[in-house]
């Protein structure tokens, strides 16, 4: 005799589509995605109405990304990514991944999901997949909107950068996709960290803020050159390596190392999250 109620299958619980809808109905999701679409518009307006500022932000050769931002749709998209990669995308990914379990815990709905019963590992797995999906959607929304309105306003031109020759528009799209791909991989660390904290705490804000805070801490430590080769092990150390994808030929060494670092960190964080969640007492 089957143990379960008729119609119940553990593998059918918590369908991914249901979780997608569950998250989509949340204001937080709508606002975050909406902002990702709005940001390029704001940047565009800033370029349109802003005067000619003459401040060098000290970014060295890459400061030219600012000067080149209005040279075409691809460059505009690149600039939008450049300004968001350091902080905004981190916050958004931390939001999607850090809030997902902790908010259910704080609403008290987590215990009812577990009593369905949704197997704990399945619950985490579905939550993680959907959170990552939304993170990716945010990234693509940002890039897509920027590319669209940038192209409409500034035209379809080769991807320019002062570190290398101009990249033809067709290949420029590939480079842009590669950059997005690398950013997505690097952000897996944030996703992993936020998800782990989300499992450890019932306070959604704590998980999101904690992940961002630790990311910033790593960034600060990375600035301290006295730490030497230890810095190579910081999760943020290779976060800018995607800039290497702009040069010709493409510099992939740091990108590969960054990917290894990110994948390892993310795996460790997720493994810890699953280990902890499948064993802990749910007290919320």
């Amino acid at each position: 005799m089957s143990a379960a109620a008729t119609g119940y299958r553990a593998t059918a619980t918590m369908p991914i589509l249901a979780e997608v809808r569950r998250q989509a109905s949340r204001r937080r999701t709508q606002l975050a995605l909406g902002f990702m679409a709005l940001l390029p518009v704001i940047i565009l307006l800033a370029f349109e109405f802003g005067g000619d500022g003459d401040d060098d932000n000290g970014g060295g050769a890459f400061a030219s990304l600012v000067d080149l931002a209005t040279s075409g749709g691809l460059n505009f998209a690149l600039f939008s990514i450049f300004v968001s990669a350091g902080f905004l995308l981190v916050v958004v990914v931390a939001l999607f991944c850090g809030d997902t379990v902790a908010s259910e815990a704080s609403w008290g709905s987590l215990r009812y999901l577990l009593a369905v019963p949704v197997p704990r590992a399945r619950l985490l797995g579905v939550k993680l997949i959907v959170a990552l999906g939304y993170s990716l959607l945010a990234l693509l929304t940002l890039a897509g909107t920027a590319l669209l309105i940038g192209t409409l306003r500034y035209g379809w031109h080769p991807l320019g950068s002062t570190v290398a020759a101009e990249i033809p528009a067709g290949e420029g799209v590939l480079r842009l996709l590669a950059i997005l791909g690398y950013l997505a991989v690097v952000l897996l660390v944030v996703a992993g960290l936020a998800f782990l904290l989300s499992v450890l705490t019932d306070a959604a804000l704590g998980a999101v803020g904690g992940a961002v805070l630790l990311w910033i801490l790593s960034g600060i430590l990375d600035q301290i050159t006295a730490l030497g080769s230890i810095r190579n092990f910081l999760p943020t150390h290779y976060s800018d390596a995607w800039l290497g994808l702009l040069s010709t030929p493409v510099q992939t060494d740091d990108v590969v190392k960054g990917a290894i670092s990110a994948v390892c960190y993310a795996t460790v964080f997720w493994a810890l999250a699953f280990y902890r969640f499948t064993r802990k007492d749910i007290t919320s």
Partner: peptide
């Protein structure tokens, strides 16, 4: 059936434990 976290037999149990838990925006 022995109860463990996620035991399928829990699907035959309905529960209200420690107050309601709902998604506030729905």
């Amino acid at each position: 059936h022995r109860l463990e976290p996620g035991s399928p037999v829990l699907s035959r149990v309905g529960a209200l434990v420690e107050g309601p838990g709902f998604l506030p925006h729905l």
